[in-house]
Design a protein around this nucleic acid. Structure first.
Lengths: 191, 191
DNA sequence: TTGTGAAACGGACTGCGGTCCGCTACTGTC
DNA sequence: GACAGTAGCGGACCGCAGTCCGTTTCACAA
């Protein structure tokens, strides 16, 4: 593991240009109607640059979501309870699920892109690991006899963007999903 | 809704050829290393034929899984308990989850393809509806105060092919998943 | 400054999924 | 058997994701 070299000036400039262009085009035309060619053009860079920087379409979506997710991560780690430390595990779990559902709902399209990388992108990226570890710790604390690792995955599974989108289409509203998930969490972690 | 005309002879012949060719190539090279061009060629038909018949890649995967899934569907509807009617709801739920996990595990690659149609293919296809209705009925019967509709989705979510594959890669074995899911189901539907 | 090695660039290129539409051949009728 | 109408065929075609590699630009040192 060598030292990570600082980002070169042109690289940084282009990275920001691409993110900005993507944000603009996604907002204007809808995520799935924008090709990476178009983003590269809008950003005034070559296509290769976009791919070298972000790997693939999912990687770009992840980068765009990053800021929003970091906000939630910060609240979880250092914010006030019940999201942050200090509240009982079950409360923290449901606070997290609620917060994530809202984030997801605000950015469904982007999440769908970020999770749709043909080969399990969702479960490889850093933020999923963070959510998973967080839940696993809380589950472990509340109920050590459970398989916390697996249970955390099972609780995160209903937060898949595709499912969320499908339920939305079927007329489920956010509150119903929050209530449903809270019920599941409560059943798993009885007081 | 007009009468469904009987399948024309050439259509049937080609459909079977394509399924056979796909099966052969998938087995030989791995699902994700086979293009639809290749399948068409192997089947001795044009590419257009494959797409008209199956819609897209996911549709072909669904068709290949169909036979296996129908077997499970039959067991659920008319087979002996606990999978079939007659056992208590919780037993039927866990029997179903176990059976589905085994099916999923045997055909992960195909399931991944069938669920990966960029826009929520999984939740549109007939078999998902069937699994969902089945679970929803059982949940409703066991515990009428729950939101059976949502809860059924939440129980199916951990059966997503991508997640299963990711967990497998991380070293989870089938029994651990069965146990974990059974715990979730039991917590939701206490005796 | 100028020189040098390495990082980043960019656009031509490849291969695939999916569409389109003029052509073919099956089926049911006389 | 001949005919007409239609379902089905197939391959050329399109657009996009992702790769490759010769060229440019940067950072740093002398």
């Amino acid at each position: 593991m060598g030292e990570p070299r600082p980002e070169r000036a042109d690289a940084r400039r282009n990275r920001l240009r691409v993110l900005e262009a993507a944000d603009r085009l996604f907002t204007e035309h809808g995520v799935k109607n924008v090709s990476l060619d178009a983003i590269a053009a809008e950003a005034g860079v070559g296509k290769g640059t976009v791919f070298r920087r972000f790997g693939d379409r999912a990687g770009l979506a992840v980068a765009l979501l990053d800021e929003r997710e970091q906000e939630l991560q910060a609240k979880i780690i250092t914010g006030p309870p019940p999201l942050g430390p200090g509240a009982p595990p079950l409360d923290r779990v449901t606070a997290f699920l609620d917060a994530y559902l809202e984030l997801l709902d605000r950015h469904v399209e982007l999440f769908m892109d970020s999770e749709n990388a043909s080969d399990g992108a969702r479960y490889r990226i850093g933020s999923y690991h963070l959510w998973h570890r967080h839940l696993a710790h809380l589950i472990e604390a509340a109920h050590p006899s459970l398989d916390a690792n697996y249970t955390a995955h099972a609780l995160l599974a209903p937060l898949a963007a595709d499912l969320h989108n499908a339920l939305r289409t079927q007329g489920f509203d956010l509150d119903r999903m929050k209530a449903g998930l809270r019920t599941v969490a409560t059943a798993l972690l009885p007081a």
